[in-house]
Amino acid sequence: MIQIENLVKRYGELVALDHLNLEIREGEIFGLLGPNGSGKTTLINCILALLKFEKGTVTVLGQQMKPTSYQIKRQIGVVMQEVAVFDQMSVKENIDYFCGLYVKEKIRREQLVEEAIDFVGLRSHEHMRPKKLSGGLLRRLNIACGVAHKPRLIILDEPTVAVDPQTRNKILEGIQQMNREGSTIIYTSHYMEEVEQICTRIAIIDHGRVLATGTNEELKLMIKPRENISVQAIALDEAQLADIRSLPHVLDMGYDEQNLRVRFNSDEHNLIQLLNYFKDKRIPFGRVFSERPTLNDVFLEITGTALRD
């Protein structure tokens, strides 16, 4: 659906996109994951032909994207990071206005507007002005304005920034529903748990480059740690720590504040062998946690730094 090749965008000396390559397939919920300033929004703006770029090509729906590619634009819905609605129009008028930029036929548009209001759950607020809405409701209005015309491709640029958890869940559910109804979704965020939750494929971006692309599982397989185990243990001496370090598949470990953390490069039998060691040595222990690596671990492994806000 979208093919980006060798894309370069500079702001003066700053290279915002550095020979970036990416392919987004029809039917995906494609996550663009990266810290603030990594180039996500710049990439979106280049895809939408809102920005001129120095080098490379952007192909959308089989055609090269230009500011005048109205046939392509007609099939795209955009939800910007910042709320972009008219303060002087009501909720319904705003949705109708932005839908009207794509759908000329009045009856069809009215139907779409009604569906969009129900979709984002703003029926009881449809006559209110945006200034009267809470932050969460405003975000929902922002989404409704972007997707009311039921586009084939929906681009959501950090739509859950500064929203409460309840609204965030509703937004994420809505995105999955739109995808089930046939829309391809590009979802940018710096919240890894969101991307992990809804995206079928993910690209990790930093400093304007795609560092890795794949499904959630594929990305996690790219890194060495396969299982992280934490054990609450009151007093471990140096000899015991050395024993644990020598257990099979231990990648590295740390011990502070009575908390032992061990990373394994295999995802099988790690917990059993660790607990057996505690049992054999009669070492008292408290809570035990075992978890698979997260996208944060993937990001940490790939970039060498934690995902910065």
């Binding site: 939408l48 809102l50 005048t68 634009k73 794509y102 304005c145």
Partner: peptide
Amino acid sequence: RRMRCAPIS
């Protein structure tokens, strides 16, 4: 910016 994304010149 949102309007510039729309299919209107």
